[in-house]
């Protein structure tokens, strides 16, 4: 048996007339982080719910931690943990009681459940908040507790459905580090996100799905390459020189550069030595440049190109409510 944390084959699911999943193939080696990226309604949550044994697929197979999700759901449940889109902790009881409750449900003796709870509270910086009712927690604390609760049973595969939705950037960074630590411990992580930045920051592999189908898969750099070549951007020091710079770019690449605001020009390049030739030509023409760069397309552009839907706002800058 290959050492996959999870693999799916031709997984399909319909709800009435809506096709949520239309033949999804995934294979994620153990200990890797898979970022599942897609617009709303692409099938991300359906996929997670099937893998977490909450939904049965109509067709296809899925194995999680080596067990078939439809034929051996009980075995799968021993090795997985689910962290919901909305923090799935009990608001009415305190953080420590939440952790102990899950420990007891996982058959830890009372004392071991308490010890594990304290261990996780410490690891997630919640020791002091442990005896407070979860309803009084901030959004970031709740998310951390949610992740802590997921880890009580030392799962081999963790599903995180939009883990950082609604968190402010500082708190998000903190949560990301905790997710990276999971991968480093050999836990296989599947996370769904609408934030391209999040997938880029966390995932070893990104799978883009749209209308229930995988439209692209690969490492973040592979995906960027798959979508297209590099782009050279030039910003001139003197606005009056923008015309001459545009002529240089057009001359070297054979394409009309795109002018954006603030005197910036961008043009796609195909040959490896285009950048060098552009630099040399600009120098010869005595065009002073304040910025010159060669870059891969951003994930937003990848997304747009693959799904033909406008890219999603890259990251939440709004403060948590």
């Amino acid at each position: 048996m290959a050492d996959y944390g999870l693999e799916t084959h031709e997984l399909a699911k319909r709800f009435g007339r809506t096709t949520a999943l239309d033949g999804v193939d995934l294979a994620l080696p153990r200990g890797q982080v898979l970022g599942l990226l897609g617009p709303n309604g692409a099938g991300k949550t359906t996929l997670i719910r099937i893998l977490a044994t909450l939904l049965r697929p109509d067709a296809g197979t899925a194995r999680v931690a080596g067990h078939d999700v439809t034929r051996q759901p009980a075995q799968v449940r021993r090795h997985i943990a689910l962290s919901g889109q909305h923090a799935s902790v009990d608001e009415e009881i305190d953080g420590r009681a939440n952790l102990i409750m899950i420990g007891r449900l996982l058959d830890l003796p009372r004392r071991d459940a308490a010890r594990r709870a304290d261990e996780l509270l410490a690891r997630f910086g919640l020791t002091e908040a442990g005896t407070r009712r979860v309803a009084t927690y901030s959004g970031g604390m709740r998310r951390r507790l949610d992740l802590a609760v997921s880890l009580v049973g030392r799962p081999r595969v963790v599903f995180l459905d939009e883990p950082s939705a609604g968190l402010d950037p500082g708190k998000r960074e903190e949560l990301w580090q905790m997710i990276r630590d999971l991968g480093a411990e050999g836990v296989t992580v599947l996370l769904t996100t609408q934030y391209l930045e999040e997938a880029d920051a966390l995932a070893d592999t990104i799978v883009v799905i749209d209308h229930g189908r995988v439209v692209a898969a690969g490492t973040p750099p592979e995906l960027k390459r798959q979508v297209g070549g590099h782009t050279v951007t030039v910003r001139v020091s003197d606005p009056a020189a923008a015309g001459r710079a545009a002529a240089v770019l057009a001359g070297v690449t054979g394409r009309e550069p795109e002018r954006s605001a603030r005197h910036q020009l961008a043009v796609p390049v195909t040959r490896d030595d285009d950048l060098v030739r552009i630099t040399a030509q600009l120098h010869r023409e005595a065009v002073e440049v304040s910025e010159l760069s060669l870059r891969l397309p951003s994930l937003d552009e990848v997304f747009l190109a693959l799904t033909h839907t406008p890219a999603i706002v890259p990251a939440p800058q709004r403060p948590q409510s």
């Binding site: 449940r77 997985i80 799935s88």
Partner: peptide
């Protein structure tokens, strides 16, 4: 409809519990 139920359902416990 609460997220906690999803968590319970993904735990290796009896559906009766």
């Amino acid at each position: 409809k609460n997220g906690v139920t999803d968590r319970f359902r993904s735990l290796p416990i009896s559906r009766l519990a």
